[in-house]
């Protein structure tokens, strides 16, 4: 027999080796090879996530020189200056406003699209693809397209307004409109992803629930309220969190559409950090803003978990 030849070789081994092996196992677990598989991730996370996170916090307590290197320890001075600077307060305010403009609108529109696209119709796949298409278009490409659309003279928006005899709007240069215009671009940009996730959530709902509701004679909106939304709540929960975090992190649209202007009205937090750090090379002050952003995002996630979880209906 082939396997008999593979004799039962190790017959227990010396007591010392056994003890050493046991110790080894106790420290590393049954399969020390695991660490080999985890090594690449661990090294990369350590170098590019954890180390920089702490380094950022460290930097936020220092003044920095022209190269951005830390020089003098100044404790919380960066934070004090940050919160007393009207510029930062404005930037934080714009960011919150921006979240308010974009997140609910994106989710509601995406939900409507998803509900429509979840109907069983011939050729629905085509519509689904179109609805999700903005996911495949980069921030840069879509910002440039919207830059064109918003163009005061050549852009289509003002053309349409003039058709109705209305005066053109300076979409991106008018401080009253700029944030709205950036939000519009962002909503369009995020619709694809949000739609895709919500559609997936809808499709995960058990068909039988609707069948039995139909038999009981429940109407469409009753079913929507009593079956679809509760069953979709985990997905909605996920989508809200992701959208808010995304909104906090907005950068590309600003850089291409307004560069933070006019009059700082669209200077969202990440863009202001970018300017501080990479235009002015004030790493210390930029780091303190990063830390504030980090805790804001942490807070959002924590709040979502605390309040979202309770209402969420998990299957």
């Amino acid at each position: 027999m082939a396997m008999e030849r593979a004799q039962v070789e190790r017959t227990g081994g010396l007591p010392a080796t056994v003890a050493r092996e046991k110790l080894f196992r106790r420290i590393l677990g049954r399969q020390p090879a695991a660490w080999l598989y985890l090594m690449p991730s661990l090294i990369l996370f350590a170098v590019f996530v954890f180390y920089p996170l702490f380094k950022t916090i460290y930097l936020s307590f220092f003044l920095s020189d022209m190269k951005g290197l830390p020089t003098v320890f100044i404790g919380l001075d960066n934070y004090v200056r940050l919160f007393s600077s009207p510029e930062f307060i404005q930037s934080a305010g714009s960011t919150l406003l921006f979240v308010l403009y974009t997140v609910p609108a994106t989710i509601i529109i995406a939900l409507i699209l998803a509900l429509l696209a979840n109907e069983k119709l011939k050729g629905i796949g085509f519509f689904r693809t179109i609805f999700s298409s903005s996911m495949g278009i980069s921030v840069a490409a879509s910002s440039v397209v919207w830059l064109f659309i918003f163009n005061p003279s050549a852009g289509i928006l003002n053309r349409i307004l003039s058709l109705f005899g209305l005066r053109g709007i300076n979409w991106l240069a008018d401080p009253n409109w700029a944030l709205f215009s950036v939000s519009l671009t962002t909503i369009w940009l995020h619709l694809g992803f949000t739609f895709l996730i919500l559609l997936g959530g809808l499709q995960n709902i058990d068909e039988h629930l609707y069948e039995s509701a139909n038999i009981e004679g429940a109407g469409y909106f009753y079913q929507l309220r009593r079956i679809t939304l509760p069953m979709l709540s985990p997905t909605l929960f996920f989508v809200i969190t992701v959208s808010m975090i995304d909104a906090f992190q907005t950068f590309g649209q600003i850089d291409l559409l307004t560069k933070g202007g006019p009059g700082n009205s669209t200077n969202l937090i990440v863009y202001s950090i970018y300017q501080k750090a990479f235009i002015n090379f004030d790493f210390g002050s930029a780091s303190s803003a990063v830390v504030v952003l980090f805790f804001c995002i942490l807070l959002v996630t924590a709040l979502q978990f605390k309040f979202g979880e309770r209402k969420v209906h998990y299957q």
Binding site: L53, K55, G68, I245, V270, A277, V290, F294
Partner: peptide, 20 residues
Amino acid sequence: LFISTMMIPWEASMIPNFVT
């Protein structure tokens, strides 16, 4: 620990990463 890195926005590590 792995999952927690999902909560750390890329921007939080952007400046030191640039230096690295």
